[in-house]
């Protein structure tokens, strides 16, 4: 910050004290303009600073954190064992198949006399596990395929992308259904794998697209002209600059994965052990009593919607924060 001061400036009649501080700052201006001494703020950090004040993000994050915490501590806070049937006596298949709310059971019970609130709370575990792992595996698979296609290009790119196109052309739930029904014994892992598989092409396509954009960008060209090795260009420049939209997509996909998981469980492709609660499976069982006891469907459906909304709000505000247009 100590470039020579313009002679014309130095010649000025200096009046000490008055506005001296300001003068000093101005005189310190280098020929190239001022650079302040504060450490740099990276784009990620800048995005985080913006996010932290964004009410949409905060709402989404609050919802998500609530449910995650709930899922973690579920077994300890659920008032009843989910397999116990304390309300069995209340179930009257002819007149009152679903016990209503009563002391000790604020939401009442289900058709087998189990406590509904406890099942809802514990059900969050399965649902979140399936959503998170399915998205995670889908993300990993998609990133691997997308990186291969985007970094190598040419025939490899064409081959990978045609496979992805074929996968995308099959309706996703149908694909998941097919994959899930291939499994010899359905479990929550068949759910996870089948949902992960339908997510792979989405991530792969997205990553490959932004990798291609990066590949022709000036800063990658600059790295090439510097003589940086190809591997370093891919992993230090192309991938980190392309991954942003993929991460955003992942938070949005989480919501979809939860809904898909619910749908597959609803269709009976989830964990065959009906004693372990899961929101989709609860929703499936509730349809039998939809006219007599709509609340049986309402609670798990509401939970699914709220969780999905939480992830979507987070994803959308993340997308906004990482958008290059908001950079200054």
């Amino acid at each position: 910050m100590s470039d020579p001061i313009d002679p014309a400036v130095a010649e000025d009649v200096r009046r000490p004290s008055y506005g001296q501080r300001r003068r000093d700052r101005i005189d310190a201006l280098a020929q190239a303009g001022a650079v302040d001494d504060t450490p740099g703020v990276s784009l990620i950090r800048g995005a985080w600073l913006r996010l932290r004040r964004n009410p949409v993000f905060l709402t989404g994050a609050a919802i998500t954190v609530c449910f995650v915490v709930l899922a973690i501590i579920a077994p300890w806070i659920a008032p009843w064992d989910v397999t116990a049937r304390p309300l069995l006596d209340e179930v009257r298949p002819q007149t009152n198949p679903v016990p209503g709310p009563q002391p000790g059971h604020p939401l009442g019970g289900d058709d087998r006399g189990r406590d509904l609130l406890s099942r809802l709370i514990v059900g969050s575990r399965q649902t979140l596990i399936v959503g998170v792992f399915a998205t995670l595996f889908g993300l990993i698979g998609g990133v691997i395929l997308g990186t291969i296609a985007g970094a190598i290009g040419g025939a490899v790119d064409s081959l990978v992308m045609r496979i992805v196109d074929v996968m995308l052309s099959i309706p996703s739930l149908l694909l998941a259904f097919t994959v899930a029904s291939l499994a010899r014994s359905p479990s929550q892992w068949t759910l996870i794998v089948s949902i992960a598989i339908i997510q792979i092409p989405i991530f792969a396509r997205l990553l490959r697209g932004s990798m291609l954009a990066q590949r022709s960008s000036d800063h990658v060209l600059a790295a090439r002209s510097l003589g940086v090795k190809k591997r370093a260009i891919v992993f230090r420049h192309m991938l980190p600059n392309s991954i942003g939209p993929v991460i955003v997509q992942a938070t949005l996909s989480l919501a979809v994965a939860i809904i898909d998981a619910a749908a597959l469980s609803f269709l009976g492709l989830g964990n065959p052990d009906q004693r372990q609660p899961e929101w989709g499976q609860m929703l499936g069982l509730a349809q039998r009593y939809i006219s007599e006891a709509p609340h049986l469907a309402f609670y798990p459906a509401g939970c699914i919607i709220v969780v999905a909304l939480g992830f979507t709000l987070m994803g959308e505000s993340l997308r906004e924060a990482l958008d290059p247009k908001t950079r200054r």
């Binding site: 014309a8 000025d12 506005g19 003068r23 101005i26 201006l29």
Partner: peptide
């Protein structure tokens, strides 16, 4: 413009 000005006098920054 004062910070970039070669003709700056004292009053310019006040």
């Amino acid at each position: 413009f004062a910070p970039r000005c070669s003709h700056r006098v004292d009053v310019c920054t006040r």
